[in-house]
Design a protein around this nucleic acid. Structure first.
Lengths: 216, 216, 216, 216
DNA sequence: AATGAATGAGGGTTCATTCAT
DNA sequence: TATGAATGAACCCTCATTCAT
């Protein structure tokens, strides 16, 4: 079961929000779509209003600032991406611990790269803002390091115990894996180049299996 | 001998240009510095003029558009980064072919990561513009693939011949290596986090030595 | 017994009005308070609604325009200030005619300057709007001249008859007195500077007693 | 020789300013005229631009804010009104000391009331802003009290020495005189009601001559 | 060639006013 | 009747770009 696309998550979130009037939801949706395609700076509040079928005044009714609009758009993305990733790990941990580093890479990679592919546009906003070091994004990175990273390290430790993983620093191992996976992700987001997901991951797993095999 | 910082390369290039009037050179230099710190969108032509000690009109004497100014700033970066990287490989190739994948990673990594560290700001512009898919940047990526990639592949082939590298597709091998190295680069550019260059690379090399060792 | 503060007069008037719904009364009260502090231009209909514990729509239920709101606020002030001032004179006239110009100045001055002190804020609106030559304010000045002025002139005449006042034009005498008294008033309204009421008036009376003594 | 109208003083000042481009002068002149007629809040930068035959951008070229424009307009008024008034006193002091309180009132009154009459509009801006307690106006009042007031007090002292003025506190005497004179001024500014200057002042002087005569 | 004043379209934002519920 | 979401004109201000000097 592939992860839900961000845009859908976003929309669901909006619909669940009882307080937010319909038009305000349209505003957020329009802002998301426009920011994703044109970037924050190159998007006009007028454009947002038009795409949302709403007057410009309505855009400012709830969100007092264009900046606040960005935050409102970014926040659900951030708060959804992170917990989902975290839960992904936790779920697998409790249900059936990873048999091998291969297992871990393929399971996570499949899920997350699919997610990236499904959400190219949305993630491009994130990337753009990361480069600007916007405040909400700083929180994001911190969130990642406090939730996901420990979960992964825990997995590493378990694999090490069962002698399925080389006895290097968790940080070091994480670095390599995350770099390669993010490398794929970056190519998707930046160049929209498709990936032969299944095979690519199998090969990648094979590589890490070699590189991270414990010394016998 | 560490690679020359982009800013110096840029300046040298400017001074060599006989056609460009002095004031125009100041303009380009100012534009580079400001774009790097504030980004393209958040930089004013007035700011450029002021920093360049030049009138606003002068900024537009040669470069008819702010966009053209960006191009003019980006182009030397692109055309300098690429050949240098290419020549880096070629030089090492001709002088003394890499003894091992370790050798390659450490040599190249040392050089390029140092380069990244020295040019964080400038590279951040590049990254920002890459996300916007600006025209000059598309050329950049193409340039890379036509000059650097073949050079590296050639190295891979040689290592394979001498049975020092596993017989996988060059592209696949390249993917892994470039991902890990760019991973370090990204961390530098985005978070300005320093790196224990020497040791990091030695460890990284060790990892790849394992992962990419030929089947015996 | 000091004169009732305008704000209270205003409130009483509102409560007496049977036709006006409770919420509308709250609106007027809020408008008065806000206009007094921030001025008409710098007060938002939203602010009025909020302070009145009422929706923005309700503000416009009866008063079709922000301008009408100002009128509605100004009118009771005007129609209350003036009659009260007029009756003040008349009352004193009928009860016990002034013994001297001193008597008149001290009696009136005490009452009116106290009034000014108690209603600085409200009067500041009036002054501000006077400068803009708003319609309701024109009525105000007219009202003053038709009610108060004759009452005072009548007093002057009586004093003259008893040889207690110089035989100058009433208008001229009025000018001097009103100027000095308004001078005190202005200082209060503009600079909020307190006044030693009792002594100041005694001294002022002494001055006028000299300046306006009849030729013997 | 009547005092130069503010608008002319203003214009002269502008023309003397070598640095200020012609269009900027038009901007200030237009701002002055519009503020005087409509008040600050009700004047649009677009209106200013139109009246000045200038683009809206030009309005903001030198004056970064509408508020700064007000300051720029107010400053010359303030800095011209005050010194002129001060010098008026000083000039008369040195040349020929006032013979009597009559002399003082007529001399000063003539000059200043003429000035008020000639500059109704401009002074109305001042008054409007005084009520708002804007910063530049606070300086104004302070300037008055530190320059003019002492000069007048000095005159009072001299008259007292020569037994031509009652021995009251200078402040008290000043109060009465200024109130009556400002009373005339206010009527001019607010109601544009003309004054029979010469006669009015003669009468006023007579009144003060009585009220402020020394005890024999 | 260089200046910097001038332009004017357009951006973000506010707010009096309207109207569906 | 009361609500408050919605409107849209207009405001202040910015800035890439032009042009007279």
């Amino acid at each position: 079961m592939p992860p839900t696309p961000l845009r859908d998550l976003f929309q669901n979130n909006l619909q669940d929000d009882q307080e937010l009037p319909a038009k305000q939801k349209q505003v957020l949706q329009a802002a998301l779509d426009l920011f994703a395609v044109q970037g924050f700076d190159n998007t006009t509040t007028k454009q947002i209003a038009t795409l949302a079928n709403v007057s410009e005044g309505t855009v400012y009714k709830r969100f007092k600032t264009k900046e606040q609009l960005l935050t409102a758009v970014l926040k659900p993305i951030i708060t959804d991406v992170t917990p989902q990733m975290a839960s992904e790990f936790k779920r697998v941990i409790t249900n059936h611990p990873f048999e091998s580093i291969s297992d871990l890479i393929i399971t996570i990679g499949k899920d997350r790269l699919q997610f990236v592919w499904d959400n190219q546009k949305e993630l491009r906003i994130l990337l753009g803002e990361i480069l600007k070091q916007t405040q909400p994004v700083k929180e994001f990175t911190q969130l990642i390091t406090t939730t996901i990273v420990p979960a992964v390290y825990h997995q590493f430790d378990q694999l090490k115990e069962r002698n399925k993983l080389i006895n290097w620093d968790n940080e070091r191992i994480f670095q390599y894996i995350i770099s390669v996976l993010l490398g794929y992700g970056a190519r998707i987001v930046i160049f929209s180049s498709p990936i032969e997901l299944e095979q690519t991951l199998t090969e990648t797993a094979e590589f890490f299996e070699r590189g991270l095999a414990p010394n016998k």
